[in-house]
Amino acid sequence: MAKIICITGGKGGTGKTLIAVNLATLFKNHGFNVLLVDGDVENPNTYLLMNGKLENSSEVSFFEPKIDEHKCTKCGLCAENCISHALLYIKDAIPIPILNVCSGCKLCYKICPTEAIIADSRVIGLIYSTKVNNIDLLIGELKPSEARSAVIVKALMEKIDILLNDKHEKYDVIIFDTAPGAHCDVEELIQRADYVIPVTEPTRFGRLDLLRIIELIDLLNKEYRVIVNRSSLLGFRDQFLNELNDNDIQVLGDIPLDEDIVKSYCIGVPLMDNHSRFDTQGKGYKSFQIIYENLAKWSGIKT
């Protein structure tokens, strides 16, 4: 059974994607079958850090009520029962769908006595599935201007369910890379995870957003351990780690500022890739090794 590890963190730009990609790479290096899922559907960019491409797309559609004017008896039952008030009904007139408030629940479609509501749909996003460096990659993308990002995340989860229910299922580890924030997209991913890793940095912003995401993780009753990225920033490392300790927040490891990490980020080759030519004695490299060891121990994923 595949173990699901969720890389998250309230704050943007803390290094979630960097860590997700490098942990996926480390698991692959150790002979595991890895699926990496990019759940930051408003800014899917995990593939960029691996020099991958967006390919093999499938569409994610969203329900849109359309009214068959010949069948509609103008009874108003649909509008009366629409919880989002997405159907504008004036007596003796055909209801008008106000699509941007429609939740997609299809109640109108189901209850119309004359079947005058047609279940139309529009494409609001895409799911890509690709493979880079022997890591399977699943990427969700919400189309710009669309609001319902959680629908894309749900579609990603459905896709994973299909993969996991397949009797040829082969994954040992599934790594989620979430969006920043503590909203429903992130919640959906954490909910599915066995182990949660919030990534933060030793700044006031990092601290505040970490506490927010921990609040969410606690609500969902999940185990978590923190990674402190850019830990050497301005010399706050020890103070920050102590503060986490004082608050009973467990730490999986920390990653200091490191030029190799920046380089790997810019050229799109994961630092921990076997074929990368980074210094295996570098402080970034070593910190990832320590984190991997700790994670393997914590999650029980071992060779």
């Binding site: 509008a79 997405a86 504008l88 009904y89 004036i90 408030v101």
Partner: peptide
């Protein structure tokens, strides 16, 4: 006092 969709419901009253 609607939770959401007040504008649409108000427009409905105006139309009705």
């Amino acid at each position: 006092d609607a939770m959401g969709g007040a504008g649409i419901q108000a427009a409905q009253i105006v139309g009705n």
